[in-house]
C-alpha cells in the first residue's frame, strides 16, 4: 500500500480494517494516537520511564482487544484514553503503598524535567504545575489534560469520560477553582514564610 493510497483511506476505513485484524491499519491508528496517549500518561505519572511502559501497555492491550471494539461514533482515541486511564489508575494503586509526598514537601524542580523531552517542556513552572495537577482527583486530571493538551471540546471530553456535556462543564469550572485556590494558598504560604525569615 503506497503512502498516497493510505492518505486517501479515511480513518473510519482504517479502523474497520484494524478491527478485522489488519496490523498495517492498526499501525496507522498507533501513529495517529501515540503522542497524545504518551502525553496523557506522562502528565499523570510525571516520569518518562513509566510513561513509556504504560503507553506500550495501552497499545498492546488495544491490539489484543481491538477485535471486540464497537464503533459507536466516538473517536477511537476515546477508547485508548479509557484504557490509559485504567492502567494509570492501577499504576497509582500499586504505588500507593509508598509514602505520598505533600505539595509542601514536593520538590519544586521535578527530576523528569531533565529528561530528553525537556526541550518541549522548558519552564520549571510546568514542573510545579504538574505537581499541583497530580494532587487533583483522577477524573479532574484527565479533564485538564484533554482540555488543554488535546484541545478537546466539552462534548468530546464528555464522550471519553462517559459523562454529559453539562457535567463536564461544571466539573471543569470546579477543577479550575480548586487548582487556582491551591496554588494561591501555597503562594501566600511561601510569601509568609519569606516574611518571617526576613524578620
Amino acid at each position: 500500500m503506497s503512502n498516497n493510497e493510505k492518505q486517501d483511506i479515511s480513518m473510519e476505513d482504517v479502523l474497520a480494517k484494524a478491527i478485522k485484524g489488519d496490523l498495517e491499519a492498526f499501525s496507522v491508528l498507533y501513529k495517529e494516537n501515540v503522542q497524545r496517549i504518551y502525553t496523557y500518561i506522562y502528565y499523570r505519572t510525571g516520569n518518562k520511564h513509566d510513561a513509556e511502559d504504560l503507553t506500550a501497555r495501552v497499545f498492546q492491550r488495544a491490539l489484543s482487544h481491538i477485535g471486540k471494539y464497537e464503533d459507536k461514533g466516538v473517536p477511537f482515541s476515546a477508547w485508548l484514553y479509557r484504557i490509559a486511564h485504567n492502567l494509570v489508575a492501577n499504576w497509582h494503586r500499586d504505588r500507593s503503598r509508598k509514602k505520598e509526598i505533600s505539595i509542601d514537601e514536593a520538590p519544586m524542580e521535578i527530576p523528569s524535567m531533565d529528561m530528553p523531552e525537556s526541550s518541549m517542556i522548558k519552564d520549571q513552572e510546568i514542573g510545579v504545575l504538574m505537581t499541583y495537577v497530580r494532587t487533583l482527583p483522577a477524573d479532574r486530571q484527565m479533564l485538564l489534560i484533554l482540555k488543554f493538551v488535546d484541545d478537546m471540546t466539552n462534548i468530546e471530553i464528555a464522550s471519553i469520560m462517559d459523562k454529559s456535556e453539562g457535567a463536564i462543564k461544571s466539573l471543569y469550572h470546579r477543577t479550575l477553582l480548586q487548582l487556582r485556590d491551591r496554588m494561591e494558598e501555597d503562594g501566600n504560604r511561601s510569601k509568609e514564610n519569606e516574611k518571617t525569615r526576613g524578620n
Binding site: V34, E125, L144, V149
Partner: peptide, 12 residues
C-alpha cells in the same frame, strides 16, 4: 495561563 503551560510531550 494554564493553556500556555500545558504542552504536548514528544516521546522519544
Amino acid at each position: 495561563e494554564l493553556k500556555k503551560k500545558f504542552v504536548r510531550v514528544q516521546p522519544d
